[in-house]
Design a protein around this nucleic acid. Structure first.
Length: 1052
RNA sequence: GGGCCCGUAGCUCAGCUUGGUGGAGCGCCCGGCUGAUAACCGGGAGGUCGGGGGUUCAAAUCCCCCCGGGCCCA
């Protein structure tokens, strides 16, 4: 092997630049993609292309995807890796409005829809290019040249196909629905878009509705939206709640019994009398008059509907009066109850938030700002206002413009998803969810699924492919461009509005002219069809049929109700099945304090900044080490620590490369099979650990737990290889001659590092490629061009020795105890000790020590390790006793001083007796005294030359006594260490030989002389002189334990 | 108001599925090493396992309630 790693300073940034250049030059990605294998259809959740800079969370998202993709490629799969972009929708329209300085739909029309839509497209294009660049930067190996883009004609056409499918299945319908409406954006908001609430102040009024045919008797209702009173149709009550007729002054009010006290106290009424109480069911059918009947045109037609109906779903006993005023066009429940009972749907607010003509006196008023006040005033004048105040409550506002929303019945197009509920549940159950709780969350959501309002009264979106005949008023759904052409439509170059709006087709029913309904589709529709639209289906059926279903998707947990759902919905509508097999849910990237990262909060970390400060692999390893489905806290410190791990990764490979090349090691010639009989326990251990790692890694990656894989990889290289194995093989590796033992160590180390390098490739693609090119590829015939074209190793079960792994881990634990004992006794590690005695407390430890004695001895720098029984220590142990005054005083009373004297005088004897038989008897002042364990504290004492430490594993005793020779070795090592330091200072090469001078303190010089062969070998000296260094030699005076020594070296 | 998730050392996080002596890294203190070295190794201090209740011989772990945070809904 040739060393291509050492001698160069480790610079991860430089490495990444070079690797990138290599990938581009050799077209590695293209070659990786071209390889054939079993299909793995990965479907990219398209990020929304509304900004140029990606969020740390978006980067995390793509890094997870990339790790999974690379992993599958290295398993031999042919991975479908087309990325996507979500490009339509209101948020982008808003940005363009802002950049054009306009504020409403009307202004867009005056600018020209064509210009507006072109601006949207241009904006999105720039964003996509910037985002792709950043994704490629962190090494996301997706097909950035050919992403799927939701605004493309082919994609739009694929979208149309699903609307047509829905229509064919009888799921498409036009209906009224009460939905949140933004009067500023002039559009309906989907349920999940109603996400922002503000604390707003509103009126809180109690209104008296006169009961028809009874004098001075009223239904009492409560509302915070006076503007809905003109649209009142009926009143809802709960059949099981108790109601009361209450006399207040000369009037009678009807309200819930349970609400009585609170309502009266709020209204400041202290004197009232309950005339009778009864269940709500008795109120059914009770008619009333509308107090504003003569001011509101539509109310004259609604007279016949004004009555109390039973509607438990709309009434609670914890708020209001228990009687709920229903405005069928302005409340969700109101609408549902009205539909059920065949009541009319009345909506009196127009698209811009003004009261309609039917609202009579209030026509033209803004619903919140003006109508509220006017209605309240009129009610007061009519004597219908029982009480009025103000209240601050959470009120929904538009998520983009913060305008308070109105509930409003509007005409929209729907897909009857509720009809598909059972299918959805069946299909979702068959999906594998990681983690498992994602399934629970998803299922809970499906239980309450609603019909899907797909239409939007906007511009930048997939046009709704519905044409309505001017003559017969029937509508026709167009499923493709070809169909459009067949119906006589002139197909525009771009399928967006406004061009598509101008397409007139022939009505298939009456032959009349049909024009398009001007709506566009909900943007959630777009990404929901990605599973087939990104493959060009149905224009190109083959690709989809080959690839479906998607084998894997992964997005943040917010997408449960988002993309995961919209995909499933589209899958079931279009194909009757789930479009994906496995789902991984990842967390949110939060800031260092655990809050959401937002530009407006000033805690936003720019991706470009991140990547300029921290190498990509470091970012990746750090991101991937976080538990994937939990939220991630951004941390510069965490990244810094991760960067430090990389220096150890690097150093480990440099170490291997340096020595293997020095010894011309050839991994192909010296495989672990070829050195089998020379493998030492530590070698067999590392080989076993390597296979355990491989198994663990596959289990983690296969189970979509990349964090577990990363943690296993990290600890293997840091703990097992670098801090343990390399330390233990140093002596073998420094051996000058070519020994089988050294070769065995190299073979083992190469085997472990090779496996690690391959396993790490999906996680840290840059560094692993770099090291592969310089360490592995030149050493192996038939190694692929790139590490990413290699196959991952599979665990070889016969090489796993669980017993050995357990034993080594016990030995490591024990070694720590010994080191702790040494540290406590001030015995430095460099000085050997003559003997470590182990008295094991567990049988498996005894076995481990007896089979791995040498390993333990090496780890703790001891000349010998001996297993002994407790009896051995007992022989060396002496006990001191400490009387426990409390116990002794309580029992011996007046005799206590005498007893204490006895203990002091015959302490050793007392201790021995109690230790051996549990008691000691003697006569004191003529009385027989019996001392037991409870009277005394026994303190074990050992000879001065023995250091003892007891742990849960064993009792450890270290013999501090050193033989003369060992003492000399200790001193010699002190000299060696300093000579090594000087070699380094003198910039000698590792393989250079030197001449050494040692002079000064007699004991030191004598020690070196005794250990001369050892010293020469360690320092690579050809000769040692015991006098002052010659002129020109590199010399220095040292002080070691108060002894002065002069050391000199010169290259031989 | 509902569903799901999170809360463990000063900081970042394992451990919880399957109850049995609480772990790692960083930081801090002490010591060591110097042939991977702008590294590294060892030792030590540091914890009401968010709070309360329950089940159990035994709870960080299982159950219930509460508090704080996240996501999604109402």
């Amino acid at each position: 092997m040739q060393d291509r790693l050492s001698g160069e300073k480790y610079d991860q940034f430089m490495i990444e630049a070079e690797v990138k250049e290599f990938w581009e030059r050799e077209k590695v990605y293209e070659q990786v993609r071209r390889r054939k294998g079993r299909k793995f259809y990965f479907l990219d959740g398209p990020p929304y292309a509304s900004a140029k800079s990606i969020h740390v969370g978006t980067a995390w998202n793509k890094v997870i995807k990339d790790a999974v993709i690379r992993y599958h490629r290295m398993l031999g799969y042919s991975v479908w890796d087309k990325p996507g972009y979500d490009t339509h929708g209101l948020p982008i329209e808003v940005k363009i409005e802002q950049s054009l300085g306009i504020k409403s739909k009307k202004e867009i029309q005056s600018v020209g829809i064509d210009k507006f839509v072109e601006a949207c497209k241009g904006f999105v294009k720039e964003n996509m290019e910037a985002m792709s660049r950043q994704f490629a930067e962190i090494g996301a190996s997706l097909d950035w040249e050919n992403p799927y883009v939701t605004y493309e004609n082919s994609y739009i056409e694929s979208g149309w196909w699903l609307i047509k499918r829905a229509h064919e299945r009888g799921l498409l319908y036009k209906g009224y629905k009460v939905l949140h409406w933004c009067p500023r954006c002039e559009t309906v908001l989907a349920d999940y878009e109603v996400s922002e609430y503000r604390e707003l102040e509103d009126p809180s009024i109690y209104v008296k509705l006169p009961v028809r045919g009874r004098e001075r008797e009223y239904l009492l209702i409560w509302t915070t939206t006076p503007w809905t009173i003109p649209a009142n149709v009926f009143v809802m009550a709960h059949p099981q709640i108790e109601y009361a007729r209450v006399k207040v002054g000369d009037e009678v009010l009807i309200l819930a019994r349970q609400r009585l006290e609170e309502v009266m106290s709020e209204a400041g009424v202290s004197r009232y009398e309950v005339l009778e109480s009864f269940p709500g069911s008795r109120l059914e059918g009770l008619e009333y008059d509308h107090p504003l009947e003569e001011l509101v045109d539509v109310q004259r037609e609604l007279r016949q509907y004004h009555r109390v109906v039973m509607a438990p779903e709309g009434v609670t006993a914890y708020e209001g009066t228990g009687l709920v005023h229903a405005a069928s066009g302005h409340g969700t429940v109101d609408y549902e109850v009205a539909s059920r009972l065949g009541m009319p749907i009345v909506s009196l607010v127009d698209e811009v938030g003004r009261m309609t003509r039917e609202a009579g006196k209030y026509a033209g008023m803004h619903f919140r700002e003006e109508a509220n006040r006017a209605v309240e005033e009129d009610l007061r004048r009519k004597g219908a206002l029982f009480h009025s105040s103000r209240l601050v409550h959470r009120y929904p506002v538009c998520w983009r413009c913060k305008t308070p929303l109105a509930l409003r019945a509007t005409e929209q197009w729907f897909i009857a998803v509720t009809k598909l509920r059972d299918e959805l549940i069946r299909e979702a159950s068959s999906v594998e969810w990681v983690p498992e709780w994602a399934r629970t969350r998803f299922m809970n959501m499906l239980e309450e699924v609603r019909d899907w309002a797909i239409s939007r009264q906007r511009f930048w979106g997939i046009p709704l492919p519905v044409w309505v005949c001017r003559k017969c008023k029937k509508y026709h759904v167009v499923g493709s461009v070809q169909e459009l052409r067949e119906l006589g439509g002139e197909v525009p170059e771009d399928l967006h509005r406004p061009w598509i709006d101008r397409v007139i087709i022939r009505c298939p029913y009456c032959g009349g002219e049909a024009e398009r309904v001007p709506d566009v589709l909900d943007v959630w529709f777009d990404s929901g069809v990605a599973f087939y639209a990104s493959l060009g289906y149905p224009a190109n059926r083959q690709l989809y049929e080959e690839l479906e279903p998607a084998d894997f998707i992964v997005e943040g947990h917010d997408q449960t109700r988002g993309w995961f759902f919209s995909l499933l919905r589209s899958g079931v509508i279009g194909f009757g099945k789930s479009p994906y097999r496995r789902v991984l849910v990842h967390g949110f990237a939060l800031d260092e304090q655990g809050r959401e990262m937002h530009k407006s909060l000033g805690n936003y970390v720019e991706f470009e900044e991140l990547i300029s400060k921290v190498p990509r692999d470091v970012v990746r390893l750090w991101l991937l080490s976080s538990t994937v489905w939990e939220d991630l806290r951004f941390s510069w410190k965490g990244l810094e620590q991760t960067a430090r791990d990389f220096t150890v990764f690097w150093n480990t490979f440099v170490f291997a490369s340096t020595y293997m090349s020095l010894d011309a090691f050839d991994p192909e010639e010296s495989s672990i099979e070829s050195v089998e009989s020379y493998l030492e326990p530590v070698d067999r251990w590392l080989i076993s650990r390597t296979n355990s790692l491989i198994a663990q890694y596959h289990e983690a990656m296969g189970g979509l737990r990349p964090h577990d894989a990363v943690r296993a990889l990290r600890s293997f290289l840091l703990e097992d290889v670098s801090r343990f194995y390399v330390r233990l093989i140093r002596r073998r590796v420094w051996e000058e001659r070519d020994t089988p033992s050294k070769r065995a160590a190299y073979a083992t180390l190469y085997y472990a590092l090779r496996a690690w390098l391959l396993l790490a490739a999906p996680i840290i693609p840059f560094l692993s490629e770099y090291i592969y090119q310089r360490f592995m590829r030149p050493a192996e015939r038939g190694a692929a061009l790139s590490v990413h074209m290699m196959l991952l190793p599979q665990p070889e079960k016969h090489r796993v020795d669980e017993k050995l792994e357990r034993e080594v881990s016990l030995i490591r634990e024990l070694a720590e105890e010994v080191l702790a004992a040494r540290a406590n006794a001030g015995l430095r590690l460099r000085r050997p000790v003559s003997k470590v005695i182990v008295v094991p407390k567990r049988r498996e430890l005894a076995e481990a020590v007896s089979s791995l004695k040498d390993m333990l001895a090496e780890l703790v720098n001891s000349k010998a390790v001996e297993l002994e029984s407790e009896a051995f220590l007992e022989g060396l142990r002496a006990y001191a006793v400490k009387p426990l005054l409390g116990e002794i005083g309580r029992e011996f009373k007046k005799l206590t001083p005498e007893v204490l004297k006895l203990i002091e005088a015959r302490g050793a004897e007392v201790a021995q007796a109690i230790a051996e038989r549990g008691y000691f008897e003697a006569e004191v002042n003529g009385e027989r005294v019996r001392l037991e364990r409870r009277h005394l504290e026994l303190v074990a004492e050992y000879p001065e030359w023995l250091v003892v430490r007891e742990s849960e594993l064993a009792i450890i005793a270290i013999d501090k006594r050193l033989s003369e020779l060992e003492e000399a070795e200790g001193y010699a090592r002190e000299v060696i260490r300093r000579a090594q330091h000087m070699r380094k200072e003198a910039r000698l090469m590792i393989e250079d030989r030197v001449v050494l001078w040692v002079s000064g303190d007699k004991e030191m010089v004598e020690a070196v002389r005794k250990m001369e062969e050892f010293v020469k070998n360690e320092v690579r000296a050809v000769k040692v002189f015991y006098n002052m260094p010659e002129e020109g030699a590199f010399a220095r005076e040292w002080e070691i334990d108060d002894k002065k020594v002069t050391i000199g070296i010169r290259r031989a």
